[in-house]
């Protein structure tokens, strides 16, 4: 099998598109966290500031997996590691 540059670039673009599907999980997780935080504020409005900071911390940690997918996509699109095998 012979691969030329264009074929590899196209496959890299497809792979980058597939990699950012990882964003679904953190989206659902962040939504759940925000919903529960809203419920908690409704139950106890006095603790709003600490609930908000806890929610933001948890959301940022949950975001990490999505960012790994984003990172893979960025590497595929801008660093193009699959082209290194060509020459």
């Amino acid at each position: 099998m012979e691969f030329n540059r264009e074929f590899i670039l196209g496959c890299s673009a497809i792979g980058a598109g597939l990699a950012v599907i990882a964003g679904i999980g953190p989206g659902v997780g962040q939504g759940i966290a925000a919903g529960h935080a809203a419920a908690a504020v409704g139950r106890n409005p006095g603790a709003k500031s600490s609930i908000t900071s806890t929610m933001l911390l948890g959301q940022a940690v949950a975001e990490t997996t999505g960012l790994y997918g984003l990172l893979v996509a960025i590497l595929l699109l801008f660093v193009k590691p699959l082209l290194w095998g060509l020459n």
């Binding site: 940022a60 940690v61 990490t64």
Partner: peptide, 16 residues
């Protein structure tokens, strides 16, 4: 690794 990648990827995505 996860600490640094979180910060890096967030800021890089904003920059992009």
């Amino acid at each position: 690794i996860s600490l640094s990648l979180r910060l890096f990827a967030n800021i890089l995505s904003g920059t992009i």
